[in-house]
Simulated assay, not measured.
Amino acid sequence: MTIRLKVQLASGQSLEGAPLELLADGKPIARGVVDKRGDVVFAVQPGKVALAVRVDRSILQS
């Protein structure tokens, strides 16, 4: 199964190259990197879990 996300920040900052993790019930199950359009794709197994996305915020500059 493929999960596709579009990442957009209200500030207009680009997250290109940002490493993201897809979490299932709080545990990482897939990793992806944001492309220049703000898209990221995760390949996962189907199932009934609570999903969340985590970004390493240390890559963001103020």
Rank of each mutant, 00 (worst) to 15 (best):
M1G: 10
L51I: 10
L15V: 08
K27A: 14
E16K: 15
L15N: 09
K48S: 13
F42H: 04
Q13D: 13
V44H: 02
L23D: 02
Q13P: 00
V34P: 07
G47H: 09
K48R: 10
L15Y: 13
M1R: 05
A30W: 06
G17L: 10
A50R: 15
G38P: 07
D35K: 11
D39P: 00
E16N: 14
D35F: 02
L23M: 11
V55Q: 10
I29A: 00
G32M: 05
P28K: 06
Q13I: 11
G32W: 03
P19Q: 14
L15K: 07
V33N: 03
T2M: 08
A30T: 01
L60G: 00
V53C: 09
V53F: 05
A52Q: 13
A18N: 12
Q8P: 00
S58R: 15
K6C: 04
A50G: 02
I29R: 01
V55P: 00
P19S: 14
G17W: 08
V55S: 04
F42L: 01
M1S: 09
I29P: 15
I29W: 12
M1C: 03
A18R: 06
Q61T: 15
A24M: 07
A50M: 10
F42A: 01
S58L: 04
L22G: 05
G38Y: 05
A52H: 08
G26T: 04
D39N: 08
G47F: 09
P19H: 11
L60M: 13
L9C: 06
S14M: 01
R4P: 00
F42V: 06
V41N: 07
L15T: 13
A52K: 10
L51W: 12
D35C: 10
L51Q: 00
Q8T: 14
L20D: 04
G12H: 10
S14W: 05
R54H: 08
I59H: 11
D35T: 12
R37E: 11
Q13L: 15
L5H: 04
G47T: 11
